[in-house]
Design a protein around this nucleic acid. Sequence first.
DNA 1: GCTTGACTCTTACCTTACGTCATAGACTAT
DNA 2: ATAGTCTATGACGTAAGGTAAGAGTCAAGC
Lengths: 257, 257
Amino acid sequence: MNAYSVQKMAKLAGVSVRTLHLYDQMGLLKPSIRTEARYRLYVEKELLRLQQILFYKELDFPLKEIQVILDNPGFDLVEALLSHKESLQAKQYRISMLLETIDKTVNHLKTGTIMLKPEELYEGLAKETAEAYRTEASKKYGNEVVAHSEKALGKLTKEQFESLKAELKENATALFALKNENPISEQTQNLIAKHYEIIRIFWGTSGLSDKQAEAYKGLGQLYVDDERFTFIDGQPQPEYALFLSKAMAYFADNHLK
Amino acid sequence: MNAYSVQKMAKLAGVSVRTLHLYDQMGLLKPSIRTEARYRLYVEKELLRLQQILFYKELDFPLKEIQVILDNPGFDLVEALLSHKESLQAKQYRISMLLETIDKTVNHLKTGTIMLKPEELYEGLAKETAEAYRTEASKKYGNEVVAHSEKALGKLTKEQFESLKAELKENATALFALKNENPISEQTQNLIAKHYEIIRIFWGTSGLSDKQAEAYKGLGQLYVDDERFTFIDGQPQPEYALFLSKAMAYFADNHLK
DNA sequence: GCTTGACTCTTACCTTACGTCATAGACTAT
DNA sequence: ATAGTCTATGACGTAAGGTAAGAGTCAAGC
């Protein structure tokens, strides 16, 4: 029966000596032998336990849980694995969301590359902003602005477009809940700031540089002028429209140069 | 112009007071006003910066990088985002591997549930172990063992089966590299332990309980008896076969009750 | 004017799973 | 005996805060 020193043990398992010290100290893996000079000596049994530890570590189990698992022979491993699986899936989902956001942002920054088919451009939310903007705003600000917006939208992927729609809808819901508050409250203005960011993507970020404040105020005015844009559950919401236009005008005056 | 206390600021942005203290201390977000009593007062400008910080934090950027990004207006955001994307994708890949491993393990523990179609059972690696075992081992150990093995294999999903094949191949490569070493060295025995685990899945984990050591040694002897099982690049490897059988026999005698 | 309660300040220790010294003792080979 | 390698313990640092301690500040009610 041969025994291994810390270093040999570490090399065998591909971990550091420090790791073995730590495992010893926390009681996760204690060498069965200590020489007179307190040198640690590990035997086969401990090597096998270390392999098991590393297996669970590979699965991202925290060390304390590994200890519980290994020290309770009757532990329900399957349940532990399945619950661990769920947390990993949640992580994976979150990462996929992050990746989407990055893609959107990069595409936004690069002024986009992928083209949407034209017929996919106007649907759902498009009625609320893009088409509204198209039909009405062109009267006031000229066709080049509308053309720019359509071009920008065309550069989004379908997923990005859908996601943007969802964001705007969420934003609108939050704003509607505040319609009886002060339009210049921080809470409202924070939501308006987000609203502006979303709208800006619909518009496309480049161009319009000088006229952004004016254009955004114009969109706010549009909500007041045409009740179609603030229909909720089939009812026009003139107060909400007024609230929005005030909040947007304040934001434009104070944050857009 | 209104200013916010730490608490108000924290609530507005949905972070803790401690977080603001920390950001202040590390210079990431300093309040522009400090009262006589050293109370922190934040203004709009800082609220906007905090929003930006939170945006990048959402993307899992470390705070120090966020600081660099926000303090260097000319920073190449696109590049930073793309490199960040890569690290996220690597994470995602790793998680998907972990999930596969968990699935395999759970299925292993539960003795499997999903059935593979029979015609998918024997292909590629099946030649190296299952079929080998089938054609030869049944002479020595009887048909019930072979039947059990086929049943176990049938309970793996195709993905699991493929993955197992890959693992065994990797294991075999590692073992082949050690063919001139001592069969009972720790290094070899560790690989053999893994080999045994993989083979055991092919055999199915239940049953065979008492005869595992004998059966495993039998498989080792098979490598010596029939050169077909150790063909590598079209050449039989009798020395490798002998090395394997010795290593397996030693493992069986010392670790399988 | 005083107390109470809510708020804020700084300092500092705790968390994970180790890495990286620093100091000192132990072992091996020449 | 001495050099070189190995080991032990202790302590500090990491990322991003959580939690708590002790003390000072502010507005309100009595």
